[in-house]
C-alpha cells in the first residue's frame, strides 16, 4: 500500500508543474504586460520601469518562469502591489477568519446532508424522497447572491437576529459574526451534497450483495444499517475529504458581503485593485490545495477499497 501512496504522491508532481506552467502562461504570456493593468493609464515611464524591475518582468520569460517556480516551492510570493505587504503574511492573516466561517459551515452541511440523504434513500420512490429531491433542485437553483441579500435583509436588518456584516477577531464574538453567513453556506451547499449522496447510496442498493441479503431474509432496516451504510460511506467520505483543503480559501461572496477579512475577501479586493501578484498567488494556492485534496482522497480510497491498490 505504501508503494501505491508513494507512486500517487510522485504522480502529482507533473500536475503541479503543469499548474505552474498554466498559471505562468496565463498571467505572463496571454495577458500581455501585467504592469499596465496594475498602474493604469496615467503612470510615468519611470514608474512602469521600476515596477517591471521589482516583479522581474524585465527578465527573459524563462528566468521569470524559474523565479515563479522558486516562489511556489518556497512559498514566498513577494509583495502585494496594493498593500505592499508580503503576500505570504496576507495569506496567513486571512486563513483564520476564512476557517472561522468555513469549518462550522462545512461540518453542519456534512452532518445535515448525510442525515437527510439517509432518510431520503430509506424512503426512496415514496413522498419523502420526492419532496427531498424537489427541495434539493430548488435550493440549487436559487442564486447564492439572492440567499445572501435576502438573509442579510431579513435576519440581519428586519429581525435583527444577526449582525448585518462585520468581524471581530476576539473569541467568542467572531462566532456571532459568522453565524448568518455559515447558515447561508449550509442552505446553498446541502442541496448539492444530498443529491450526490442520494445517488451514491441508491447505486449501492442496486448491488448483488443487497439482493443476496434480501434473499436470505434480512429485513430492510438490517440491510440498510449493516451493509449499505458501510459501503455507501466511501463516496461520502471521498466527497468530504476532497473539500477539506479548499476550506482555507473560504468563500468569495459570503466573505465579501459579510465583511469577513478572509482569503475570499482578499481575492476580491485584489481583483478590484488589479493586484496581479495576489491574484496569481491565490490561483496557485487554490490549485495546490486542490491537488492535496485529490491526493488525500485517492489515498483514502486505497485504505477502504483494497481493489484500487491492485490496478
Amino acid at each position: 500500500m505504501w508503494v501505491y501512496v508513494l507512486r500517487r504522491v510522485l504522480s502529482s508532481i507533473p500536475t503541479l508543474f503543469g499548474v505552474a506552467l498554466l498559471v505562468f502562461i496565463l498571467f505572463h504570456v496571454m495577458g500581455g504586460d501585467p504592469v499596465y493593468q496594475m498602474v493604469g493609464k496615467h503612470a510615468s515611464a519611470q514608474q512602469i520601469a521600476d515596477l517591471r524591475h521589482e516583479y522581474g518582468l524585465d527578465q527573459p520569460k524563462t528566468t521569470q518562469f524559474l523565479r515563479y517556480l522558486q516562489q511556489v516551492v518556497t512559498f514566498d510570493f513577494g509583495r502585494s502591489y496594493a498593500t505592499r505587504q508580503p503576500i505570504r503574511q496576507m495569506i496567513l492573516n486571512g486563513i483564520g477568519p476564512s476557517l472561522t466561517l468555513a469549518i462550522p459551515a462545512f461540518i453542519l452541511t456534512t452532518v445535515l446532508s448525510v442525515l437527510i440523504s439517509l432518510v431520503v434513500v430509506y424512503f426512496r420512490g415514496r413522498w419523502p424522497d420526492r419532496l427531498g429531491v424537489v427541495l434539493c433542485v430548488l435550493g440549487m437553483s436559487v442564486p447564492m447572491l439572492a440567499y445572501i441579500l435576502l438573509g442579510q435583509y431579513l435576519f440581519g436588518y428586519k429581525l435583527g437576529w444577526f449582525p448585518i456584516s462585520g468581524f471581530d477577531a476576539g473569541w467568542p464574538q467572531r462566532l456571532g459574526y459568522v453565524a448568518l453567513p455559515a447558515l447561508i453556506w449550509v442552505a446553498v451547499a446541502t442541496g448539492y451534497d444530498v443529491r450526490f449522496y442520494r445517488t451514491a447510496l441508491i447505486e449501492e442498493l442496486g448491488n448483488d450483495y443487497v439482493r443476496t441479503a434480501r434473499a436470505k431474509g434480512l429485513g430492510e432496516p438490517g440491510i440498510f444499517l449493516k451493509h449499505v451504510l458501510k459501503n455507501g460511506m466511501i463516496p461520502v467520505l471521498t466527497n468530504v475529504v476532497i473539500q477539506i483543503p479548499l476550506l482555507i480559501l473560504g468563500s468569495f461572496l459570503l466573505e465579501r458581503f459579510f465583511g469577513i477579512p478572509g482569503l475570499g475577501s482578499m481575492m476580491i479586493d485584489a481583483l478590484h485593485g488589479s493586484d496581479f501578484p495576489v491574484i496569481r498567488t491565490m490561483t496557485t494556492l487554490g490549485a495546490i490545495l486542490m491537488i492535496i485534496g485529490n491526493l488525500a482522497t485517492d489515498v483514502l480510497y486505497t485504505v477502504f477499497d483494497p481493489r484500487v491498490r491492485l490496478s
Binding site: 507533473p14 500536475t15 503543469g18 499548474v19 506552467l21 498554466l22 498559471v23 496565463l26 498571467f27 496571454m30 495577458g31 479548499l246 480559501l249 468569495f252 481575492m267 481583483l271 491574484i279 496569481r280 491565490m282 490561483t283 487554490g286 490549485a287 490545495l289 486542490m290 491537488i291 485529490n294
Partner: peptide, 23 residues
C-alpha cells in the same frame, strides 16, 4: 490527460476569474 488534470486542478471559479481578468 495531463492537460485536463492540470486544468481541473485549479478550482473552477478561480480559473474562470483569472482568465477573465487576464483577458
Amino acid at each position: 490527460v495531463w492537460f485536463y488534470t492540470t486544468l481541473s486542478s485549479i478550482p473552477n471559479i478561480m480559473l474562470v476569474i483569472a482568465i477573465t481578468y487576464v483577458l
